[in-house]
Simulated assay, not measured.
Amino acid sequence: MHDLVIFDCDGVLVDSERLTNQVLVDNLARYDLHVSLSECMSLFVGGTMSGVHQQARSLGADLPDDWVEQIYTEVYAALRAGTPLVPGVRVVLERLDAAGVPYCVASNGRPEKMQITLGQNGLWDRFKDVMFSAQVMGTAKPDPTLFLTAAQHFGAVRPVVIEDSENGVTAAIRAEMRCLAYAAHDDGAGLSALGAEVFTQMSQLPELLGL
């Protein structure tokens, strides 16, 4: 059995990716970059907002220098209006608790964002002291440092990563960790090609974790 489960947050614990990316679609359209929701998710899921800022500019968006703070304000408002848990997540966490397996979250997102999404679902207290954020640590996926730091913190020798993005899977593989990739919106072929084991329902996760 694994001695640590490292969860990504957006798209794995909370069903926030479509909400966030719709805000991006609407915002970027105001700066003359017109993309569909699916295109936006393909381009930006798993990255940082600073990375989105740079990439959107390279695609022709005339974004202001303070755009990152602007978009976070808009995203936070949308998430506060209601961000559901990914179906089945609470059961997975309860099974981990029962088995005595520790878990944490490692995300490219800001802690403030996770407090909004996890907090409204009653999960903030579970994760607030075991949260590894790229915005705090200054290094983001696909760099493996977030995952390696989490494993070192727990003294884990058999950690497993739960991810949903190419950047996240790449970071896990670079960290030489087993990666289980949750593919909720497609067949996960891209994630599988990077080395992840793909699953499509959270109800499958306890068995994959050996619980």
Rank of each mutant, 00 (worst) to 15 (best):
M1G: 12
M1I: 08
H2V: 08
D3L: 05
L4W: 04
L4E: 02
F7Y: 06
C9L: 06
D10I: 02
V12S: 05
V12D: 08
D15H: 08
S16H: 06
S16L: 04
S16W: 01
E17Y: 06
T20I: 14
Q22I: 05
V23I: 08
V23T: 03
D26W: 11
N27E: 14
A29E: 15
R30E: 15
D32L: 08
D32G: 10
D32A: 14
H34R: 15
V35I: 14
V35Q: 14
S36V: 09
E39A: 13
E39Y: 11
C40M: 14
M41A: 07
V45R: 10
G46S: 02
G46N: 02
T48F: 07
M49C: 07
S50M: 10
S50Y: 12
S50C: 10
S50Q: 13
G51P: 07
V52A: 13
Q54L: 14
A56S: 11
S58H: 10
L59R: 12
L59Y: 09
D62E: 15
L63V: 02
D66I: 10
W67K: 03
I71R: 03
T73A: 14
E74S: 12
E74M: 12
Y76D: 15
A77T: 14
L79R: 02
A81R: 11
G82N: 05
P84R: 04
V86S: 07
G88D: 03
R90V: 09
L93Q: 00
D97F: 04
A98H: 07
G100A: 09
V101N: 04
V101H: 06
Y103F: 12
C104W: 01
N108T: 12
G109D: 07
P111V: 11
P111M: 09
M114Q: 14
Q115K: 15
Q115T: 11
Q115E: 15
T117F: 00
L118Q: 01
G119K: 05
G119Y: 05
G119C: 07
Q120Y: 05
Q120P: 05
G122R: 05
G122I: 02
L123S: 00
W124C: 06
D125L: 09
D125F: 08
F127M: 00
K128E: 14
V130A: 15
V130D: 13
F132W: 08
F132G: 03
Q135L: 15
M137N: 11
G138E: 03
A140M: 13
K141W: 05
P142D: 06
D143K: 07
T145W: 15
L146C: 08
L146A: 08
F147E: 00
L148C: 10
L148N: 08
L148E: 11
A150S: 01
A151D: 02
H153F: 14
H153A: 13
F154I: 03
R158I: 02
R158Y: 01
R158V: 01
R158P: 00
P159W: 02
V160L: 09
V161N: 01
I162A: 01
I162W: 01
E163Q: 06
D164T: 01
E166W: 09
V169S: 06
A171H: 00
R174L: 13
E176V: 12
E176S: 15
M177R: 07
R178M: 09
R178A: 13
A181S: 01
A183W: 02
H185Y: 13
G188I: 06
L191D: 00
A193R: 09
A196Y: 04
E197D: 10
V198G: 03
F199G: 04
T200V: 11
T200L: 10
P206V: 04
E207Q: 14
E207L: 13
L208W: 03
L211G: 04
